[in-house]
Design a binder for these strands. Structure first.
Length: 326
DNA sequence: AACCCTGCCAACCGCACAGGC
DNA sequence: AGCCTGTGCGGTTGGCAGGGT
């Protein structure tokens, strides 16, 4: 038995909001506030709408600080950068874009940015990205803070901020590190600080547990760690290493947050575009044994997640961006 | 002109969390 | 401790608009 609906669907209006409804809601909220209770608000305001619908309408459209209109290139790049690090955490991404809502960002990504990025994939190959991987060691490089640093790639006729953002993720020894393939590590601190205590591992949905368990893991400061430990030890040649002695499987009470940054799981967060996976460094194997694009689900086949396995012959050795996993 | 296709975006749905009781 | 309710979030859907045939 599911939970009771939040409202009586038979007696509430659905669908697009009329200007009159907008005016009523706006007037009420500006006069009385939400009262901390959206469910009761429509009744008080004289609206035949579900409270959730009112809340959504206010947050996404009526709020005075909402920014409508086209996204700028800077915003594009922020979205790409954060998406590459966080995945579809739209509310967090939107929080870095003043005046934009999570719905806006999500729609924009799904309808425009994703395609733009995909269209640029050919360019990615042409730019020989793998040769752009840095060779210098720099494990102290910092994350962008609350306003993600817009990497100052020189503008040129061919400059593409989306490409640049993606390239940054690939080529920089970012503290958002290398995915062993089972989840993502996110920085839970509002300003994406480097403090390892603010980084938590999120298992990939469908593989181990739902992402929403992430919240619970924050509360007890005990991130859910998964079979990423199959990666065993990692030799640290460029950025971070993982030490599986502190890893645990869900249900294993011995799990906990290591205070040592080198013991935090690593992740590129967004996975890697197919070119990088399939260029001899990595490949993926779907459950159906098809090689696929699942490491970048939103750019490929969003319905598939896959384990990442080292290519046969590499003997458990995965080399990515100067990170060796033995 | 009519139909079809595609893109876009507002709105909805369902789930999980948070907090009160 | 467990239940209940409100809230927040991400995924999905429905409908409109515009372009193409």
């Amino acid at each position: 038995m599911g939970r009771a609906p939040c409202c009586d669907k038979a007696n509430v209006k659905r669908g697009p909001w009329s200007p009159e409804e907008d005016a009523t809601l706006k007037r009420y909220v500006e006069t009385y506030g939400t009262g901390g209770n959206w469910i009761a608000l429509p009744h008080k305001a004289g609206l035949r709408r579900c409270g959730k619908s009112c809340r959504l309408r206010w947050l996404n459209y009526l709020r005075p600080d909402i920014k409508h209109g086209n996204f700028t290139e800077d915003e594009d790049q922020i979205i790409c950068t954060l998406y590459s690090q966080l995945g579809s955490r739209w509310s967090i991404i939107a929080s870095h874009l003043p005046g934009r809502t999570d719905n806006d960002v999500k729609n924009y990504w799904n309808t425009k940015l994703k395609k733009k990025l995909l269209a640029g994939k050919g360019n990615l190959a042409g730019k020989n990205m793998t040769n752009n991987f840095p060779t210098s060691s720099n494990s102290d490089q910092t994350l962008p803070d609350s306003t993600p640093s817009l990497h100052s790639a020189p503008k040129s006729e061919t400059y593409d901020p989306l490409f640049s953002a993606l390239q940054t993720q690939i080529s920089s020894p970012l503290p958002i590190l290398t995915d062993i393939g089972y989840g993502i590590t996110v920085n839970t601190h509002e300003n994406l600080s480097l403090d390892p205590r603010n980084r938590h591992f999120i298992p990939r949905p469908g593989l181990m547990t739902r992402v929403s368990q992430f919240g619970a893991s924050l509360k007890n400061n005990s991130p859910i760690l998964t079979s990423a430990q199959e990666g065993s030890s990692v030799s640290k040649s460029n950025s971070l290493a993982i030490d599986n002695k502190d890893l645990s499987l869900p249900g294993n009470n011995s799990g906990g947050v290591s205070e040592d940054a080198d013991q935090i799981l690593m992740d590129l967060g967004f996975g890697i575009p197919y070119e990088y996976v399939n260029n001899g460094l990595w490949y993926q194997e779907k459950a159906s044994n098809e090689v696929g694009l699942s490491c970048y689900p939103n750019l490929a086949d969003s319905s598939n997640y896959a384990d990442i396995k080292p290519p046969q012959g590499l003997n458990q050795s995965v080399i990515l961006n100067n990170i060796n996993i033995d």
